[in-house]
Amino acid sequence: MRARTTAFILGAVLVFYLVGCVWRGVLALYTAVDQGSWIAGMLGLAVLAFGFIGSWVLYREIQFGFATERLARALDEDETPGGGLRYEEIDGLPRSPGGRVDRTAADALFARRKADTEATPDDWRCWYRLAAAYYAAKDSSRARGAMRHAVKLELEAAVD
């Protein structure tokens, strides 16, 4: 719950900042029209573009967060043999005194999860577990990629 609260606060701050960007862009465009300054107009358009691009990125990240939560709930409810997220595998990894997962143990878990995913590449559950293994191995960019693929596969399976 702590991560969700932090994300909410940071999202609210970003929304406040983006509204300010859009407002300043509109003011710069007004100045450009009022005083005939094409430099102010270009600056206003650039600030507006940054505001709208930032809004789009924020929307996509929120959408991604809700999708990953939906998949996590579905895996938690999965009671088939070998199903579920298998928290015990990640929670059982040896850790340093600071709480970080041992890199070699995380790599071993990653190798098992990668083999499972290669065996069934169309199963979103395997991709979700692979993303969790990437995250445990501290490879967050690949974890996000695997999670995005899991979301895509789950959406395709829901349509079929």
Rank of each mutant, 00 (worst) to 15 (best):
S37M: 02
R103A: 08
D102I: 00
L155T: 12
L48N: 05
R24S: 05
L93C: 03
G145E: 14
V13C: 07
A143L: 07
Y59N: 11
C21Y: 06
V15W: 04
R129N: 06
T117H: 10
K138Y: 13
G82C: 08
L153P: 11
K138S: 07
D76N: 14
D116M: 10
G65L: 08
K114I: 04
Y59E: 03
L43A: 15
T68W: 00
S141M: 13
F66S: 10
L93R: 07
G41P: 10
R142M: 07
G83T: 03
D123E: 09
A133I: 00
V151W: 05
R148I: 00
L93I: 11
Y135S: 11
V26C: 11
S96Q: 09
E154V: 04
L109F: 02
V19E: 09
E88C: 06
A106L: 11
A115W: 02
T120R: 10
R2I: 13
T104V: 08
G41I: 08
L43I: 14
L109E: 09
E154F: 12
Y87M: 13
G98K: 14
F16Q: 00
T6S: 13
D107R: 15
G44P: 12
M1Y: 09
A49P: 00
Y59Q: 07
H149E: 15
T80K: 15
R73Y: 04
R125M: 09
G99A: 05
D107L: 09
I9G: 03
L10I: 03
A67E: 15
L93H: 07
R2P: 02
D78Y: 15
V159P: 00
G98A: 15
L48Q: 09
D107W: 05
W38I: 14
C126K: 04
V26T: 09
A74Y: 03
Y17V: 09
A106F: 11
V15N: 00
Y17L: 15
D76V: 01
A133S: 09
L43V: 15
R2V: 14
R113D: 12
A132L: 11
R4H: 04
L45A: 15
F52L: 13
R4G: 08
A49W: 12
E61F: 01
P94T: 13
V22G: 03
R24Y: 06
L155S: 07
R103G: 01
A115H: 04
G20V: 09
G82M: 08
F50P: 01
L85W: 01
A136T: 04
T68P: 00
F50V: 11
R4T: 07
F50C: 08
A12V: 12
G98D: 14
E69P: 04
V15S: 06
A106W: 10
F52D: 03
A157R: 15
R125L: 05
R100T: 04
R73M: 01
A105G: 09
E118N: 13
T5I: 14
R112C: 03
E89G: 01
F52E: 01
R125G: 14
T6N: 04
